[in-house]
Structure formats: C-alpha cells, structure tokens
C-alpha cells in the first residue's frame, strides 16, 4: 500500500483531479450561451447520435411491440370511452374553427400579424435518455437542420415536458421539467380559473415525491380551484403562448404565510416518451 500513496502518484492524481474540475467548470459556465455547443462538439454529438440510432432502433422496436400488445388488451374499454368523447369533440371542433377564423379576421383588422400563440411544430423521436439521476435529459432525433432552436419548448402528445438545451446538426438535447437543479430555466405560466381571470407566474420547482410542479410566490387575490387549467403565458419570449402544462392540484400558503404556492399536476407522463414535438416561434 505504500506504493499507492507514493509522492509522484499523488501529484499525478491531484493534477488529474484539477484538470477534471477545470473542464467541468468551463463546460457548465458556457453551456447556457447562445453560441454553444461549438462546432467540434456538435460534430462529436452527431457522430455519437448516428451510432446510437443503430443501437436504439432494436430497443425502441421492442418497446413499441410491448406497447402495442398492452394497447390491444385495453382496446375494448378504451373504445367505449373514446366513443363518448368523439361526440363532444365534433361540436368543439366546429366552435374552434369558427373562433380561429374570426380571430384571424380580427387580427387582420388590427394589423397584428404575429401573435404570441403562433408556432411551428417539429416532430422528433426520442433516441435516448441520460443514464444519470442528476440530469433528466433526453436526446431527440432532430437538430438544427430540421429547424430546432435552443431554448425552444418541447411537448409530448399531452403536454409540456421540457426545453431544448443543446442543438447539434442532426440531434439535440432536451432538459425535462422535472430537473430541479438551480441551473435549469423556468417556464412562464398562467392559470385561468372558471371565472376567466388569470394568474401569472413561473414554474419554480418540481416535487419528486408527489410528481407535482410548483408555482411559488403567488400574491394575486384571484381564486384558484383544483382542476383549473395551466398553460404557458408566452411572457419572456422563448415560449409560445398557450402550450398545455397541466391542472392545479392544490393551493396552499407558503412557509412564511405571505404568498400562496400552487401545485400543478403535469399533463405529460415524463417517464414514457417516444415521440416529442418541438415548438418553434
């Protein structure tokens, strides 16, 4: 064991650790900049992504096979439930069509060409998930060539799941909303209650144990009830308005009793993601 702590080896170990900490600090410091990742890093990611596609393909195939079997088992109950919904949907669709046509006309009269709620959708496959408990990240199969931009919000079929943090040419990284680290960006959201009044705020955290998002420091007097819809507010400029986030679970006083804290049930299931949509403004 004397050999293990010989002078020369100790110096080497310390130098290696210092290099490691240095590299890590630099990459954390520059990763939020608009220009990152640099070209060489993008190239490496594209190569790794190409190899990953070959390995992820059979694994994902296996997953979709098991999914279709379980879908088949639930078909009857699902069909009955969906039939009821379809009748209501036809009505809602017609209303939505008329409203959106009217909206377009009114906007033309006001000479308001771009609104906060406009976006184009880019659909991508999920290639892989970072095998780490500290970074809830996905790698998706579309990149800059498909029009994905940094900081764009990402949705699954049912609701918001996160935002793009790194864009390469053919793939990009998505940070999930369940990331609680202090470096992750927060979404601007609003809650509309049954009377039509809105409350603005930001997603301030994620409660792992109960799988709920929290919106802290709410000082508004507007009454919010359980089940009220939560959507993105479009404030801040990165996110289009009106992306569905979830529903209100509970409203309670914060630790100091001055402001209230709203807990939100996310609409999307963050643990079952195969296809996602990137919303570009």
């Amino acid at each position: 064991m004397q050999k293990f702590f010989s002078n020369r080896k100790l110096v080497i170990v310390i130098i290696v650790l210092i290099i490691s900490v240095g590299l890590m600090s630099v990459s954390v410091a520059i990763r939020d900049k608009k220009s990152t990742p640099p070209l060489i890093q993008q190239f490496g990611n594209d190569v790794a992504g190409a190899v990953d596609r070959v390995i992820a393909l059979p694994v994902n195939g296996l997953q979709s096979a098991t999914n279709s079997v379980s879908d088949l088992l639930n078909t009857y109950q699902e069909n009955q439930k969906l039939k009821k919904q379809v009748d209501q949907l036809a009505q809602a669709k017609v209303t939505a069509q008329t409203t959106s046509a009217e909206n377009k006309q009114l906007r033309k009269q006001l000479k308001l060409n771009e609104s906060l709620s406009d976006y184009t959708a880019v659909t991508a496959n999920v290639l892989t998930r970072t095998p780490s408990s500290w970074m809830n990240q996905l790698v998706i199969s579309k990149g800059a060539t498909a029009g994905v931009k940094k900081n764009a919000p990402v949705m699954s079929q049912s609701g918001l799941i996160g935002r793009v943090v790194e864009v390469n040419q053919t793939n990009s990284k998505v940070e999930l909303i369940s990331n609680t680290s202090s470096t992750s960006d927060k979404f601007a959201i609003q809650i509309t209650n049954s009377a039509g009044k809105t409350v603005n705020g930001i997603v301030s955290g994620y409660d792992k144990s109960s799988n709920l998002l929290t919106m802290g420091s709410v000082t508004s007097n507007v009454k919010i009830k359980k089940g009220d819809k939560v959507v993105t507010s479009g404030l801040g400029g990165n996110t289009p308005k009106g992306l569905y986030v979830g529903t209100v679970a509970t409203v309670k006083q914060d630790d100091y009793g001055l402001a209230s804290e709203v807990e939100i049930t996310p609409a999307a299931d963050l643990s079952d993601l195969t296809v996602v949509t990137v919303a570009e403004q």
Binding site: D52, I55, A56, V59, V126, R129, P131, S133, K208, S271
Partner: peptide, 21 residues
C-alpha cells in the same frame, strides 16, 4: 448506448420517484 436506450425504455421503472436507479 444500451445504458441510454434502456434508461429511456424503462424510465417508468428505473426513475419512479423518488427513487432513481
């Protein structure tokens, strides 16, 4: 690459909150 692919497929089991394996 299997580490990542399997983590995504079994995300519901491996990362069922609060536990993460």
């Amino acid at each position: 690459f299997l580490d990542g692919a399997l983590s995504n497929v079994f995300a519901g089991k491996l990362f069922s909150y609060p536990y993460s394996s």
